[in-house]
Design a binder for these strands. Sequence first.
DNA 1: GGCCTGTGGGACAGCGCTATCCTATGAGTC
DNA 2: GACTCATAGGATAGCGCTGTCCCACAGGCC
Lengths: 343, 343
Amino acid sequence: MTTPKNDKNTRTTGRPTLNEVARSAGVSPITASRALRGIPSVAEELAQRVRDAARELGYVANPAARALASARSQTVAVVVPSLGNQLFVETLEAIHAVMRPKGLEVLIGNSHYSRDEEEDLIRNYLAYQPRGLLLTGFERTESARRMLDSSGIPCVYMMDLDSGAGLHCVGFSQLRAGAAAAEHLIARGRQRMAFVGAQLDQRTLLRGEGFRRALQQAGLYDPALELLTPRSSSVGLGCELFNQLLASHPQIDAIFFGNDDLAHGALLEAMRRGVKVPEQVAVLGFNDLPASSFMVPRLSSIRTPREAIGRRAAELLLALMAGQSIAEPVQDIGFELMVREST
Amino acid sequence: MTTPKNDKNTRTTGRPTLNEVARSAGVSPITASRALRGIPSVAEELAQRVRDAARELGYVANPAARALASARSQTVAVVVPSLGNQLFVETLEAIHAVMRPKGLEVLIGNSHYSRDEEEDLIRNYLAYQPRGLLLTGFERTESARRMLDSSGIPCVYMMDLDSGAGLHCVGFSQLRAGAAAAEHLIARGRQRMAFVGAQLDQRTLLRGEGFRRALQQAGLYDPALELLTPRSSSVGLGCELFNQLLASHPQIDAIFFGNDDLAHGALLEAMRRGVKVPEQVAVLGFNDLPASSFMVPRLSSIRTPREAIGRRAAELLLALMAGQSIAEPVQDIGFELMVREST
DNA sequence: GGCCTGTGGGACAGCGCTATCCTATGAGTC
DNA sequence: GACTCATAGGATAGCGCTGTCCCACAGGCC
């Protein structure tokens, strides 16, 4: 009477809605919803009509409305500690390859190897009601752990197994991989073996621990030959640490690097300084990044199965999301020692 | 105490809602909403009470409900062609660094250098009603272009400028960068210069084009010395192409690689085969990845300002999202020739 | 025929928030 | 004191979709 209530709908998105698709197909919105979601209780002829109408209008479902109405999204969140490390990029690729065909969106979070950043990411992602979560390792804040527990959202842990009791995890034993590195160098007759680790995330520390124990067992452990730094791993840092190590301990005859980046730097620096690899010093890397087999000399490394980890973790998560019972909650994918010229 | 209440209604998320925060603070839901969004029309004393209640309950706003009600999300989508290239990872970092403090979520899409995949990603992301979009380059399908146009969502294009008329873009001229590469090698007295490009995305092609034109101008262009392949750039491919080029054209005295990965492979292969760089062949890379300055010999390269591109593109997008008028829609960040030992 | 069952499809009522009104209050004006 | 006017806060009504009931109807059985 006094105030016209017919306001222009500025709140709408302007994109076609399910209602319009339904009207255009001559069915009710619910039937349209069911048809587009592939729910079988819709007669094929009707479903086809709805799909045609949707294509015609360029309809794409509004994920916010969908998430709100159903209290679940079509999203899976992944948190990795770094995108600079090719390792995690390849893992993400494999996850994508499994999730995308299922119509699941993959949210990528980068924690920069920081527990606090990871906690923020998890808090943030949980608000999106993801169908599942893929996390790296077991190292996180207590409150992140609590949020995960109380959320009830399925979660798979990637990369490590060593302290994953009671959790669903896909990876390999970092401890055993470190030990394998030591055993290889010992088998090559090396006597004074160093470990160089950067970043100091839990996995690097575990590799160092495995390496150390194997050396101790062989009576070859020298604590002075461990070089650890919290700085982040890079080729340049590898150069620097190699020099530092050789300057302080010229007698060493093998180095195990916690990451291939570092080993690449060491090989380049050795080349530059005329240090003979492997004659004077053997160099062993970790992860076996794509470039490693092309280094001079070709780098021996422990190949980590990141493609398989990503894929299997994604598949495990899908099974959890579907409520299936899991026969093997802990999946050990193993690792492979790639022996090349540098050892 | 925060006791998760067990609704029988399965449609709820189980997490605390704005209503509960409001009740606990003794205000209406709308006041709570305003208080938490920092809308100034709420008395400070009330706002504080609401914030306290929210913290107490561990309340995190439901982004789906928020997006639905306001027809806008708190999200910005970025599409890059690859995560395997460090270049884009660094760009993403810079974007994050600008967006996160503003409370904006960054969705990362990887198009794998495929127009069709990019179109899918864009269609998908547009459904999320992002506040803005950051895309790489200008090469895309017609229907992707149409979707972007009709969405009305602000968009900034990164990396290239050469065909960005009328668009908001941040980057540098790939053409001029290619020309700069040629000029540098010419200034070094080289006579038979090759160009090696992989992936064959538009930017690589433009760099090649700039290189070619500059050689033509100097009367030094030989079409036989262009080696192009659609395979994706890697160190291994660099080795292979280097060998191939030297086998077919042993007389060349300089190679410009469209990406540092390839140049790294070439340097390693040269080392392995005893080809002297730069005496016999000068090698020039592109992007100046972190490892380049540690190669043997240290790789000369054209440094691309990806950190600045990411940051400036993000800032430009923020300005567009805020409806500000843009003084400079095309921002040329330039590039820098890093002359090192390999040339 | 009466009764059941199964099946396709629709009506309805929200999911958790926010845009848009609208009211109550109190200060300021003449 | 009667009138404005600004302002804090509330009431209401959706945003676009889906979970849950419910109904109409065909076919089978006794």
